[in-house]
């Protein structure tokens, strides 16, 4: 019987079979020249198969990759791309939301303020992080960080990875809408640089609430959407099983969004996706982030804000 590993998506399963074969050969105590050759052959096969699968991903497959159970989260990248990180907690009004991690970070010669969604890895962690779904106190913590950044002339870097803002009784009672709206309002005119990177799932208003900025970037296999493909399918198709079609129709992949000029940059992922090689992914992310910081900190801040406002104003397609 074929083994099913939940950490492998259905289209990744053929890779798992090859990986297991390679592992078996590798662990064989009586390695022969023949088995070495066989392993080399399998390795090559593995590379080719990965390429074959990942060169032709459908939008739905990319959506699955963006939400892959092994996909790196903010806290996975932090030690790999920052030289130092001091986490800062709380909105100073109500509480501390673990679905958003924030603090002071150093990357190359840039001191920055970091704000990022955080999903949980194991069951307990997922609940603690509320699956990366922030409540108002999370957005208000983010807002406090932005004010701090503005005051001390530090660029803001945000990592976006959320299914959306938390749909809960407590969140609504504390005015989730206002918390999101206030961030949009402030970010449009914050007097410091803002770089936003979608690292996984850019889920609607909950993503945008830390996603208005000077440079909007997406990791290659991340998604950014007004609604999840499943949600869209159940509303417009009245059938959540039509998520595959909805993913296609919604144009949520980095390539399509760059074509529509809604994002500025795609950050490449290693072959097989970010989760297959955290080191390579981190280095790609770091190089791109440092380049962006180098570039925008050179721009006069008043000019930068004017450019930001023009960019935000330009969103939208209509006939006149």
């Amino acid at each position: 019987m074929k083994e099913f590993n939940p950490n492998y998506l259905d289209f990744e399963q053929p890779l798992l079979e090859l990986e297991n074969k390679i592992k078996q050969l590798h662990n064989d105590p009586e390695k022969t020249a023949k088995s070495e050759a066989a392993m080399e052959k399998l390795n090559k096969e593995y590379q080719n198969l990965t390429k074959k699968i990942f060169d032709n991903l459908s939008d739905w497959q990319i959506s699955q990759l963006a939400r892959h159970p092994l996909r790196p989260y903010s806290l996975d990248y932090i030690p790999n791309i920052f030289d130092s990180f001091n986490e800062l907690h709380g909105d100073r009004m109500f509480g501390d939301d673990p679905a958003i991690v924030s603090g002071l970070a150093k990357i190359d010669n840039h001191n920055i303020v970091f704000i990022g969604h955080q999903k949980g890895r194991d069951a307990k962690d997922k609940v603690m992080r509320n699956f990366g779904m922030s409540k108002p106190e999370g957005y208000r913590k983010a807002l406090r960080m932005m004010r701090l950044a503005e005051k001390f002339n530090l660029p803001v870097v945000t990592f976006i990875d959320t299914p959306g803002a938390y749909p809960g009784i407590d969140a609504e009672s504390r005015n989730q809408s206002q918390a999101i709206a206030e961030n949009l309002f402030v970010m449009s005119n914050l007097k410091t640089q803002i770089i936003s990177i979608i690292i996984g799932e850019g889920g609607s208003g909950g993503a945008l609430a830390i996603g208005v900025g000077d440079r909007i970037c997406m990791l290659q296999n991340s998604i950014y959407s007004v609604i999840s493909p499943e949600g869209c399918a159940s509303i417009l198709w009245k059938d959540s099983k039509k998520a595959e079609q909805a993913a296609e129709a919604l144009c949520i992949t980095s390539g399509k969004l760059l074509n529509h000029k809604l994002i500025d940059l795609i950050i490449p992922e290693p072959l097989g996706g970010a989760h297959r090689d955290l080191t390579a992914m981190s280095s790609s992310l770091k190089i791109n982030l440092v380049n962006l910081l180098d570039e925008i900190t050179e721009i006069n801040i008043d000019d930068l804000i004017l450019q930001r406002k023009k960019k935000i104003e330009s969103y939208g397609e209509f006939e006149i």
Binding site: N189, L250, E313
Partner: peptide, 26 residues
């Protein structure tokens, strides 16, 4: 809410209208 059929274009109208209101507030 946002119009699903216009996808990210509609999501970004949240930023656009909020940014406009920032200018009005100023």
């Amino acid at each position: 809410g946002a119009r699903m059929q216009e996808s990210l274009f509609s999501l970004f109208q949240m930023a656009k209208t909020s940014a406009a209101l920032n200018s009005l507030s100023n």
